[in-house]
Design a protein around this nucleic acid. Structure first.
Lengths: 351, 351
DNA sequence: TTGTAAGCGTTATCAT
DNA sequence: ATGATAACGCTTACAA
C-alpha cells in the first residue's frame, strides 16, 4: 500500500497541506522546507492517490484518444506519441478505437464521459458533432473534422496533397489520370481532396470516381471492382461498378479521352483494391499505368513493383494536437480555435 | 455537473446509503424502494463518481491491457474485444503498447501502478517477470509467457501449430522444408515452436534457421537476407547471413539434402522478409517452393500469388484472458493458475 | 429494511 | 510560510 500524505507529514513534522503545496505549488513553500519534503518524497517514491486527487479537484487527469483504426500502423504510432506526451505532462491517456463505426464512437464517448475524462483528441467520424458538444470538455480534432467548427483541428493539407499528387504524375508524363475517392458525400476529407482536384495541373485529363462505401474493407472491394472496369472495360466489368459508385462519378466510357496512364488513390484502402485489381489481371504495377496512393500502407514493402505514395504527416499533427489539448486543459492556451493544415511528403516509386 | 448520491437521496427521501445499496447490492433493499430508486436513477441517467468510489473502495476499476504491437491488426482487434468485455463488466480498459521494447514495457507497467490499475492482461516481453511481480495485482498472460509460472496464460498451442504446418506442407508433397524462427534464445514462443519441430512429420527433412533479431523490422530484414541465400546460395549471399543468424541454425550448405521445396515462417515478420526475398529474385511465390506462414498478415490479400497461413487464435485467447482476469479481480475464480493452449486454424493457399 | 456517521487521501480556504 | 479544517462523493459498519 502506497504511503499517504498524512503519513509523510507525521514523519517530517509538517502539515499534510504543506506537502501538498510543495508538490503542486512549490513556489508557495519556503525553500528549506520544500527541499526537505521533495527529497523525502523522492526517496520513498511517493505517488499521490489519483482517485483522491480527482475527487477533490473535481477533475480527473484522464485524456481520451479516440482513433478510427489502430491497425493502421501510422495511426498506432501517432497514438503512441500522444500517449507519451500525455504521460510527460502528468496526464493519463485512454486509447479507444472506433473502426469508423459511428455507433462505436458513441460508445467510446459515453465511456469517456463516465470516467470523467478531462479532454479529448479525436479522429471524428462524419456524424460526431452533437455527441462531441455534449461532453463539455476541451476537444481537439485530428486528421478529420466533424463539421462543427468549434474545436482546434490538426490535419493534412488536402489541397496541397492533391496538387502534389497530380503534379507528380504529370511530371512522369501522365496525360489521363483516374482519381479514386471514397464517399465524398459523407467523408469531408475526400470531399476537400476532390475540390482541390479542380485546381490541379491542367496538363492532364482527370476522371474522378467516388465509392459509396465507407468502411475500409468495402472501399477496397469497390476499388477492386472499379479497377477491373478501368483495365478491361467489358460490359460485365462496367455493369459491376453500377452499385458501388456514386452517380456523380465520371462516366466510365473513357473512349473520348487519351488512354489511362495514371491512377491516384486518395487513401490506402482504395490502393489495396487497385493493387488487387491489377494482380487479378496479371498486370504489373506502375508500368503502363503509373500509380500513386495517399498514405503509406505497410504492404507497400512487399509489393513486387513499387508505387509512389504521399504520406500523411499524421505523427506531427498528432503531437501538435495533444499539445494543444493539454494547453487548453491547463488554461495555457486560450485563443480562438484554429485549423492547422500540414503538408504531406511525397515518396516517388523506388526504381 | 453530474448529480450526486446525496442529491438523489434528498429527492427521494431516502438515505444515500440506501441508494448505494440499491445499486451495488440490490437484494439488500426492499423491492418497493429498490424499484423507486432504480427507476429514478435510470431516468436522470445517474453516473456514480468513479473517483469517489475508487477512493472509498481502495480499488480503481481500471484494468491494464498491455500489448506489443497495435499496428498488427489481429492484435488491435483482440485489444478491442478485451476493451468491450471490460466495459460490459463495469471495468475500464487502459490500452498501452510496447512495440516489444522492454523499456517501454517497464514504463507502461509503471504508469499502470501510478493509476492504481486493479488488474492486467499482458503480452509480456522476455524479461518482464520481475516487474510483473512487483505490481501485486491479478495478472493474465496473453500470447506469450514471461517465464514466471505464477499467472494464468492463454495462447496458441505452439506444438499443435508446428505439427499442422509441417503436415500441411508434407501433404502438398514437400520433402525438404526450411523452417524460419526468430530468436529462440530470447523468445519463448519461438523456442517452443522449435521444440515441437522435433516431433513433426518425419516424411520430410527440416532445416531450421534462427534470427538473432528481435524487433519485427529486423526480423523481416534478416529473413530477406536469408531467403536470398536459400534461393541463390552464392558465396556473397551465404556470407551475408553470417551475422544475422544464431550459430545454432542449420548449415546453409544444403547440398546433401533434397532441393528445398517448402518454407515455413513461424511469424509474419519472417514472412514479410521471405516474400521480399522472392520478389528480389523475381521468383513467384508458392510455385516451386511452397510457403506457409504463421499469423495472417494484412498484406496477404495484396500478394500476386497466395500462400498458406496458420492463424493464431488470438481473439479467442484474448477474450478468455480478459474474462479470467475479471473473474480473478472479483474473486469469482480462485483456482490455481493454468495455461490454456488454443489450436490455430490452417488456411491453405487459395488456388 | 433503512438511516447515521465515519472515513478513504487529497486540496482549497482560512486563520495564524 | 505554515497549520487546521472542511469538503469532494461514495461505501460500509453499526445502530435503529
Amino acid at each position: 500500500m502506497a504511503e499517504s500524505l498524512a503519513a509523510i507529514a507525521r514523519k517530517l513534522n509538517v502539515a499534510p497541506s504543506t506537502i501538498s503545496r510543495a508538490l503542486s505549488n512549490p513556489e508557495l513553500v519556503a525553500p528549506k522546507t520544500r527541499e526537505k519534503i521533495l527529497n523525502y518524497v523522492q526517496e520513498i517514491g511517493y505517488q499521490p492517490n489519483l482517485a483522491a486527487r480527482s475527487l477533490r479537484r473535481k477533475r480527473t487527469n484522464l485524456v481520451g484518444i479516440v482513433v478510427n483504426d489502430l491497425s493502421d500502423s501510422l495511426i498506432a504510432q501517432s497514438a503512441s506519441i500522444m500517449q507519451d506526451l500525455a504521460f510527460e505532462r502528468g496526464f493519463f491517456p485512454v486509447l479507444l478505437a472506433t473502426r469508423d463505426d459511428p455507433q462505436k464512437e458513441k460508445e467510446a464517448l459515453a465511456q469517456l464521459k463516465i470516467i470523467n475524462s478531462c479532454g479529448l483528441v479525436i479522429m471524428p467520424t462524419c456524424q460526431s458533432a452533437a455527441t462531441l458538444n455534449s461532453l463539455n470538455i476541451p476537444i481537439v480534432e485530428l486528421d478529420r473534422c466533424s463539421g462543427c467548427n468549434c474545436y482546434d483541428e490538426f490535419r493534412m493539407d488536402d489541397q496541397a496533397a492533391m496538387q502534389m499528387a497530380c503534379s507528380h504524375l504529370v511530371s512522369l508524363g501522365c496525360q489521363h489520370i483516374a482519381v479514386l475517392f471514397g464517399n465524398v458525400d459523407l467523408v469531408t476529407s475526400f470531399r476537400s481532396r476532390f475540390q482541390a482536384l479542380q485546381s490541379c495541373a491542367p496538363q492532364a485529363h482527370y476522371s474522378h470516381f467516388f465509392t459509396q462505401a465507407i468502411s475500409a474493407h468495402e472501399i477496397a472491394a469497390s476499388a477492386r471492382t472499379l479497377t477491373h472496369a478501368l483495365l478491361r472495360p467489358t460490359a460485365d466489368n462496367l455493369a459491376a461498378t453500377q452499385n458501388i459508385l456514386l452517380p456523380s462519378s465520371s462516366n466510365l466510357d473513357l473512349s473520348s479521352l487519351p488512354p489511362l496512364d495514371g491512377i491516384i488513390c486518395t487513401n490506402h484502402s482504395l490502393a489495396t483494391g487497385v493493387v488487387q485489381g491489377f494482380f487479378d489481371h496479371k498486370q504489373p504495377l506502375n508500368q503502363n499505368i503509373k500509380l500513386l496512393t495517399f498514405d503509406h500502407p505497410d504492404w507497400l514493402q512487399v509489393l513486387p513493383q513499387k508505387i509512389a505514395s504521399l504520406t500523411n504527416p499524421l505523427e506531427q499533427a498528432a503531437q501538435q494536437a495533444m499539445e494543444r489539448l493539454l494547453d487548453r486543459i491547463e488554461g495555457r492556451y486560450i485563443s480562438n480555435v484554429e485549423a492547422r493544415l500540414l503538408r504531406p511528403v511525397l515518396h516517388p516509386a523506388e526504381n
